[in-house]
Computed example of a mutant assay.
Amino acid sequence: MGFLAFIILGLIVGAIVKAVMPGKVGGGWVTSIILGVVGAIVGGWLGTLIFNVDLGSFFNIKTWLLSIGGGLVVAAVYGAIRGRK
């Protein structure tokens, strides 16, 4: 998957994470979209590291599940760091 596909995937994952964790992710939609892009990258990295499963094509279910999982992890970490202020 190319860089542009990661950006598009991250935008969609950010919207999904915002819908799943509405009270947990602060900062509005822009923050959620950025966290979604980072989550897609982190999800792909963790999938390769832990499950030995790489990201497939854009329309592959593994890609979406890993990206959403990574987005939730990144959003939870962001919420934990932001909540410590």
Rank of each mutant, 00 (worst) to 15 (best):
G44I: 04
F51E: 05
I68S: 08
F51H: 10
S57P: 12
F58L: 11
I61S: 11
V77W: 00
N52E: 14
G44T: 05
W64N: 06
G70R: 04
V53E: 12
G69E: 03
V73Y: 01
G43K: 00
G43P: 07
L49F: 14
I50W: 11
S67A: 15
S57A: 14
F51M: 08
L65G: 13
W64A: 11
V73A: 14
G69N: 05
I50P: 07
I50H: 00
V74S: 00
L72H: 02
A75D: 00
Y78L: 02
N52C: 02
L66E: 13
G70K: 00
T63A: 09
V73H: 02
V77P: 05
I61Q: 08
L66A: 14
K62L: 11
L55T: 15
L66P: 10
N60I: 09
G79A: 14
S57Q: 11
V77E: 01
G44F: 02
A75C: 06
N60W: 06
T48Q: 13
G47A: 02
G69C: 05
G69H: 03
L55K: 06
T63R: 07
L49N: 10
T48W: 15
D54M: 13
V73S: 01
L55D: 09
W45T: 13
L55R: 06
W64K: 04
L66V: 00
L46D: 00
Y78P: 05
W45D: 07
I61R: 03
A76R: 00
I50Y: 09
V73P: 05
G70Y: 10
I68R: 02
L66W: 12
D54W: 11
F51S: 10
N52Y: 11
F51W: 14
W64H: 10
I61A: 09
V77H: 04
G56D: 05
N60Y: 09
T48N: 15
G47H: 00
W45G: 09
G56L: 09
G56P: 08
Y78D: 08
G43R: 03
V53A: 13
D54Y: 12
I61D: 04
F58M: 09
N52S: 13
V53L: 12
I61P: 15
A75L: 06
F51N: 10
F51T: 12
I68H: 07
K62A: 11
D54G: 14
S67N: 03
L55F: 04
G47V: 02
G43I: 06
G71I: 00
L49E: 08
G56R: 07
G47F: 01
S57L: 11
G44P: 12
